[in-house]
Amino acid sequence: MRNPLVVGSRVYLRALETNDAETDAAQANAETETFMYRGRAPASPLAFARWIEEDGKHPMPSEIHLAVCLRDGDRYIGAVSLHHVDYLNRTAETGSGLADGFRNQGFGTEAKMLLLEYAFDRLHLHAIHSHVFEHNTRSAAALRKQGYRYAGRRKWDDVKGGVYRDGLLFDLLREEWLAAREAWRATLPADVRGKGLGRDREPTP
């Protein structure tokens, strides 16, 4: 593993490096889905490199983006993020995205559980929230599986298919995340459960 920050059974999280920009651009340009955002756009590694460079300058950043890497081979397969980190109220918004070809295999759920462990047990945040567009039913289902509760609706939030669509808000407290993590752990094969995230351990100081 290369510079790991939070380690799970199959994936780990690390800081983004400037040389991840080529992969970022390649992943964005290979995207096959259009339902998540307004639409796709050609991406340049130059923009990603600048974004990563700026991202690393802040000692107490309000935006935290972490690379999701496979433990087996260190391949960088996507990113998870904390947006609008509020160190005073101890809240943040979560976001995540895996490259095409690595979805629907459990990597996203594991990466998200690692991000939440980082948020709750290392940054000691108290509450988390997340936003999805109402047509993004896949992400909404994933959030519920991760323990998030439906918090309400933001009307006319964006346009999709020629009509205005609402945004859905979800929130999550630490106890709910712990319960969801236990439920998720129970679904894992026994040999996986004992590694990385599956271990019972004290919160990292």
Partner: peptide
Amino acid sequence: HGATLREHVARPGGR
């Protein structure tokens, strides 16, 4: 009133 984010504001002695 469209949404409620639980316990999102810190106050002295509570949230």
